[in-house]
Simulated assay, not measured.
Amino acid sequence: MMADLSGAQWRKSSYSGGGNDCVEVAFVAGGAAVRDSKDPEGGAFRLPAAGWQALLDAVRGQGQA
């Protein structure tokens, strides 16, 4: 079952430079949803809070073994 994200408040990173070639995130109950800013109707994927934190750690280089 797909979650209803129609009321989600999407935002881009302040590092995106204002372009339309990045990802957007919306914080939703229990975690976050992520989508492509070039195709906002193309769908999104949801991460539980721990998954969102793991993604951030990996992107920041903290998830390396």
Rank of each mutant, 00 (worst) to 15 (best):
G7P: 05
G7E: 04
G7N: 09
G7T: 11
G7Q: 08
Q9I: 01
Q9Y: 12
W10C: 09
R11Q: 15
R11M: 14
R11H: 13
R11E: 13
K12E: 09
K12Q: 08
K12D: 00
K12H: 07
S13R: 03
S13N: 05
S13I: 00
S13Y: 02
S13L: 10
S13T: 05
S13F: 10
Y15G: 11
Y15A: 11
Y15L: 13
Y15E: 07
S16V: 05
S16E: 04
S16G: 08
S16L: 08
G17F: 06
G17N: 06
G17C: 00
G17T: 02
G18C: 01
G18V: 11
G18M: 01
G19N: 15
G19A: 15
G19K: 08
G19V: 11
N20M: 11
N20C: 10
D21G: 08
D21C: 11
D21K: 04
C22D: 07
C22F: 07
C22V: 07
C22Y: 05
V23P: 02
V23R: 05
V23Q: 01
E24H: 02
V25L: 06
V25K: 01
V25T: 05
V25M: 08
A26G: 03
A26P: 00
A26Q: 00
F27Q: 06
V28P: 06
V28R: 04
G30I: 06
G30H: 06
G30Y: 04
G31I: 02
G31V: 07
G31T: 01
G31Q: 06
A32H: 00
V34Y: 00
V34I: 15
R35N: 02
R35W: 09
R35P: 03
D36W: 07
D36Q: 03
S37R: 10
K38T: 09
K38G: 04
D39C: 13
D39M: 11
D39Y: 13
D39R: 13
D39T: 14
D39S: 15
P40R: 04
P40S: 10
E41Q: 15
E41N: 14
E41T: 15
E41D: 14
G42V: 07
G42I: 03
G42K: 02
G42P: 02
G42Q: 04
G42N: 09
G42C: 04
G43T: 02
G43L: 09
G43V: 02
A44M: 07
A44C: 05
A44W: 04
A44T: 01
F45S: 08
R46I: 13
R46E: 12
L47D: 06
L47N: 05
P48E: 14
A49G: 15
A49Y: 12
A49H: 13
A50D: 14
A50K: 12
G51L: 10
G51F: 11
G51A: 14
